[in-house]
Amino acid sequence: MITFNNLSLVYPNGTPGLKNVNLTINEGEFVVIVGLSGAGKSTFIRSINRMVTPTEGELWVEDENVLELSGKSLRTLRTKVGMIFQNYNLVNRSSVFKNTISGRLGHTGTFRSIFNLYPKEDKIKAYENLKRVNIENYIYQRADQLSGGQQQRVSIARVLTQDPKVILADEPVASLDPPTSHQVMQYLRRINKEDNITTIVNLHFIDMAMEYADRIIGMRDGEVVFDGPASDVSEKTFEQIYNRPIREDDLRGSESDDGEE
């Protein structure tokens, strides 16, 4: 369970990132955060694993207030909260397998990780997770030789290898074409259901949000302006969140569109 308690964040240059956010995300929920760029979606998500530091309020992940963590306890939190990025953020020059096993870093001692002395079950786990996202044929390829969709699948495998309780995905499909986007969202959705991992995804495509989310949180200017089950949401709701009429580019489009895979 993740609880935001009067959480605010002001960046050092004075820009407000979050304004007084109050909400609770339950275990196993699939939450999609929508909003225009600059609405605070990324700040919201990155607060949960403390990639950014909120300036006020409380943020509870399970029984820890992440604002009070530092050093070792912060790293322990991060092993429980996995993250997927818009640009996949794989280490380009390392192999797919090395990128995947790096999900174990938080669980592995410094010495062991430098000399690649991972326990056998960790290596099996990494391989199984690559198999889960159907990318196991590429394990010794360099990460930058894969297509965008393949790289994002590797980054899902990396997150899974962490054994996370929560997965955060920051615009995971913004750099992908429509069919690949749906594929990635389907993987995230399936993992959420099968492993009961709380999943929080930033999206700005309203059709995808409606298709995959259990619950939608709408943000504008750092504030939560909508919070409700996906079934309650219509285009009208999005027009309220975005504060403007819906446009063509707010939609990702269907799976059958032409694309790379």
Binding site: N49, M51, R75, T76, L77, R78, T79, V81, G82, M83, F85, N87, N89, L90, V91, N92, R93, S94, K98, S102, G103, R104, L105, G106, H107, T110, S113, I114, S155, R158, Q162
Partner: peptide, 28 residues
């Protein structure tokens, strides 16, 4: 690319691991 370091950090890696897994491959 600092984003690759972010990814290592987000798995709970400490500073030495961030350097070894994120910096070294990029500058070697």
């Amino acid at each position: 690319d600092a984003r690759q370091l972010d990814a290592i950090r987000s798995t709970g890696g400490n500073i030495v691991q961030v350097i070894w897994y994120g910096v070294v491959p990029q500058v070697l």
